[in-house]
Amino acid sequence: MPIISRGFHGRKPDPGRKLPPGQYETFDFPVLSAGPTPRVSRDDWKFTVTTESGARHQWDWGRLMALPAERPTVDLHCVTKWSKFGTHWEGVSLDVLLEDVETEAEFALVHSYGGYTTNLPLEDLLDGKAWIAHRYDGEELAAEHGGPARLLVPHLYLWKSAKWVSGIQLMLEDEAGFWESAGYHEYGDPWREQRYQGD
């Protein structure tokens, strides 16, 4: 039996919107991060994929820009309960970036400028599910939203979409990232409401 809060009516969501459990729709774009916003110039920006054997694949800003970009329109779901529908991004698919990377790894640990990390299975980065995004809503990606570039992996809670991304470490064994070590769920599927450890 659910506990009824007497006199609470709430605001029913737009029936045209498919919200994951426990989420509500927002129309602005809240900012969440654990520390100060790192300021990284495009001239200094590098993105490095490291495999389990130590092989490194690196892109600077110019090389990233030279790759074919996609323009995904996706819904965002933040573990703090807001969801934002129909956001417009531009970025390079991880399928493109990982195409020539030889690996047996099943796991990825994503690193950011500023020291943030987050972990996810490698398969969640492949097959058109993830991008290194560098534009939002037709503009350069603002620093507080992760610019110059962030990971975008919208089928998981937004903390997996690491802002200020600096690299991806491919690994044979899983390793917990920042929030995953601080009580949050290791996988983070919004549709299964995997917010916290044990959910």
């Binding site: 927002t26 654990a34 100060p36």
Partner: peptide, 26 residues
Amino acid sequence: EAAAGMLVALGHHPDRIRTERFGPSG
């Protein structure tokens, strides 16, 4: 954003600055 940026500019190491933000949609 403003306060954390000032702390960094004053020499506080970013690793010692912990932030929590309340969006307007809280």
